[in-house]
């Protein structure tokens, strides 16, 4: 790891200031992506601004169907939150399958969506839920936020403070984990509100998370796994790598979508 300078932020404002006054600084949340990347010298920020002690970035609130999860909330906290599970069990299920217990004790929702790894789980959840990403300066709809592989709408120096969404009528998540890393080889999140169904796919797209419109249309007609019999997804914009070909992933998208709907119907 290259040299770096560590700072502990006391508030979001403090973090913004520290980031501005640094040369090539980066925010540090759980470190489960950033420290790992620094160890292999894939990242070399001049300064690290630690958000883990910022109280305003912690906690989950559920008021009826309105859910707010602060950016610094860990995957373990999301997984174990009883009230959140009653409002939207699929997001807890998703969090409980990220990495391993030790990663879940440190990794945060804010860090995950700021990083926007093309195989990360949360981007699929938030895109399907039609969530809003709240930052220190504005609110961004998930549809506009995830702009590509490791790309987001965040500006230089912008801090994610929370995500919020209205719990849908039904939702489910199914992932086919890469057997070594546990990241999604393909993961599908489905959410139904009345007659509207949103379906988001992670791990499979060539350019990060995306909405599967053919599957959305089929499920809007009938929210049942059987509605996806004969539905296929084009392999054109899907990823091929040593783990799976684009064709294989195209098939997995439909299979995971069926499982996610089955899970949603509980």
């Amino acid at each position: 790891m290259y040299q770096t300078n560590y700072h502990r932020a006391s508030s979001v404002d403090d973090a913004v200031k520290l980031l501005k006054s640094s040369d090539d600084g980066k925010l540090l949340a759980g470190g489960m992506t950033l420290i790992a990347a620094m160890k292999t010298r894939l990242a070399a920020p001049s300064d690290l601004i630690d958000l883990r002690h910022v109280g305003e970035l912690k906690g989950i609130s559920v008021a009826g169907k309105e859910v707010t999860i602060a950016a610094g909330t860990t995957h373990a906290e999301v997984a174990a939150h009883g009230e959140l599970a009653r409002a939207c069990h699929a997001i807890c299920h998703l969090a409980s399958h990220i990495g391993d217990p030790h990663v879940r004790h440190m990794g945060t929702i804010g860090g995950s969506i700021a990083n926007n790894d093309p195989a990360a789980d949360y981007p699929a959840g938030l895109l399907a839920l039609g969530a809003t990403i709240v930052t220190n300066s504005r609110e961004i709809a998930a549809d506009d936020y995830f702009t590509g592989m490791f790309e987001t709408a965040l500006e230089e120096g912008e801090v994610v403070t929370a995500v919020k969404f209205t719990a849908p009528d039904q939702c489910g998540y199914a992932k086919f984990p890469n057997p070594a890393s546990r990241y999604a080889l393909t993961g599908v999140f489905v959410a139904r509100r009345g007659g509207e169904v949103r379906v988001a796919v992670t791990g499979a797209g060539d350019d990060g998370v995306f909405r599967a419109t053919a599957i959305e249309e089929a499920l809007a007609g009938s929210f049942d796994p059987s509605a996806l019999e004969g539905v296929s997804v084009s392999a054109d914009d899907l990823m091929s790598d040593i783990h799976a070909s684009a064709d294989y992933r195209a098939n997995l998208v439909v299979v995971m979508a069926k499982r996610a709907v089955a899970a949603a119907k509980g």
Binding site: G31, K39, H102
Partner: peptide, 9 residues
């Protein structure tokens, strides 16, 4: 809580 001490400063 269990954490990986290789992934934390």
């Amino acid at each position: 809580k269990a954490v990986k001490s290789c992934s934390m400063l």
